[in-house]
Design a binder for these strands. Structure first.
Lengths: 342, 342
DNA sequence: TTGAAAGCGGTACCAA
DNA sequence: TTGGTACCGCTTTCAA
């Protein structure tokens, strides 16, 4: 309840001086600063956020928009962002913008327009045109995590590369019958998934396996990958010898399906994912690592820089990912496609 | 950028009238209101959050504190909260307070003290005494999700009951050798886990199986449950015929471990969890359902009521959970403890 | 180095 | 039913 006026009174100075002493802006003698500080402490003074933001135009808050919080990647990015902001004393306001919901429309139409933040981080948002327009007219710095937007700065891994590398790993092991699992039919499709499929296709083409390209649709979730894989692997005749999952969640779904069906991984089926999910180790999943937490912290740094020092050109931070070989992939040689059991 | 003054000017009224017309407070003729509305629309007027909160003392924001966002339960609760707030036009500020981190200390010492919210929802926080003290001195309504706190209103399932019911289900199937997996050594231990262990113990006692009580420690995660279960199930002689997981994540870890070891579920091992996790169906897990999303929305309703109409007595909302029988539990009769294979 | 005072953009009381 | 005006609590010129 104590305001800066009381702090000033107690320290025997004016509000102006108290403000300067506390915020570290402008000239204040060391002695006074000390006195003001002590007064503030004694009174348990906490500045009123509303007043500060009214006076300065800064909210000390960063907005985060994402379509999910309950998927590994998003939750990890969120944690990374949160940690960075915490260190800097900034608040985080979360907007959960699920595609195709009216809540999402409200977020773009109402919530974001309020500008209750100094900058915005958009994680895997994949805004459609109209949404993009809303975003840019906010007039606050924006950093995207994931995506290809020209409109904002971006932090992302090279999805095309990751999938290509994953596929090449399998090809290197002698596999030729390699399917790509995950992602919806091409029409309404996430950009990441497209990039990864493209990387897979490129690797297949480059190896002269263009005719073996096979894309199995599936929701990008563990249960989704599981269901799709039960289908795919059910018929021994159509079964590939290796699978690239669009992400670890799908790849793990595949492994679970394989175990369910008594197909041994990796001796009868190789599986590779992209992510290095927290469960990857438990399933001995070979994967292309990305560290979303670091993408989150990188996004914060980039955003704060753009807030402090207005937007020159857009920055594009492409993060490399490396192959982590565990035990879900094996050379083709040993495979007996007819052998279904563990 | 347009302020209420410009809206007022355009509508040919005073700021006061414009404010009343827009906020719906106080008398305004229909004609004027209409005129003001139109003016606001034309100008794309959006009130400044800082000014509003300075003037009214309300932030139109709800704070949410939780120790994790990357675990199923927490993410679901968060989504429930988010959805409710979205409908009401309220912002959500997230505080990620991981136990034992210095970030957590900062949250309690600095962030929460700023009161940048009209009310607070604490999800599975399990505050220690000093933290609790901080919480109460904020002087804003607080609702807890999970927990037993006397200090705040609470929304939670009856954990003791859920675990008891789960255990009774197994006992009813003829199992006697039932272990409880999950939770740290008693010392620094989450309240939920304690309650659930207690429920398990009670059911065992009531069935005259007190001497069979067995608590296997494990991190409350899927990989944690997996690792602990590999240990537990590895030695056929010590192997129980059934397991109660402290939550679905642990129970699923157990199932995965069992499959890994070639122990068939449910014919050689019954497993029951608590949650009805999104993966429960995929693993055919029998479980006691809770719907965290609904706990989130309930918490919002409770909190808003307390904000609107100050805190009479603390409310305690205990949500019942029901048994969902899938295919991870089976009668004891058929079990041949010696038979390890699928 | 410090203080007085004018905003920042609304809300709400009091008169008219 | 409407308008004038005093705040809300802090920052920031501008003078002293």
């Amino acid at each position: 309840m104590a305001g800066i006026a009381e702090v000033a009174a107690r320290a025997g100075v004016s509000k102006a001086t108290a403000s300067r002493a506390l915020s570290g802006t402008g000239y204040v003698s060391d002695a006074t600063r000390e006195r003001v500080r002590r007064a503030a402490d004694d009174l348990g003074y906490v500045p009123s956020a509303g007043a500060v933001s009214l006076a300065t135009g800064r909210t000390q808050t960063i907005g985060v928009v994402m379509p999910y919080v309950n998927r590994w990647f998003f939750a990890e990015v969120l944690e990374g962002i949160q940690r960075s902001l915490l260190e800097r004393g900034l608040d985080l306001t979360l907007y959960d913008a699920k595609p195709g919901t009216e809540g999402r429309a409200r977020i773009f139409d109402d919530f974001l327009a309020r500008k209750r933040f100094d900058g915005l981080i958009a994680v895997g948002l994949e805004p459609v045109n109209q949404e993009l327009e809303r975003l840019t007219r906010i007039g606050r710095p924006i950093v995207s995590v994931v995506g290809d937007g020209e409109e904002t700065s971006v932090v992302a891994v090279d999805d095309d590369y990751a999938a290509r590398r994953a596929t090449e790993h399998l090809i290197g092991l002698g596999h030729r019958d390699i399917a790509f699992v995950g992602g919806a039919p091409e029409s309404h499709w996430a950009h990441v998934d497209q990039q990864r499929l493209a990387g897979y296709q490129r690797a297949m083409n480059d190896a002269g396996l263009a005719d073996r390209v096979r894309h199995v649709h599936s929701p990008v979730t563990m249960p989704g990958g599981y269901a799709a894989s039960v289908d795919l692997l059910g018929d021994a005749r159509r079964r590939p010898s290796a699978i690239v999952g669009v992400c670890d969640e799908v790849a793990i779904g595949t492994i679970i399906a394989a175990r369910r069906l008594g197909i041994s991984v990796p001796s009868a089926l190789s599986v590779v994912g992209i992510d290095d999910h927290e469960f990857a180790d438990m399933f001995a999943l070979t994967t292309l690592q990305q560290v979303p937490r670091e993408q989150g912290t990188a996004a914060v740094e980039l955003l704060l820089a753009e807030i402090a020092d207005p937007p020159r050109a857009r920055t594009r931070l492409r993060i490399p990912s490396r192959l982590i070989v565990r035990n879900s992939t094996a050379p083709m040689d040993g495979i007996d496609p007819g052998a279904p059991l563990l």
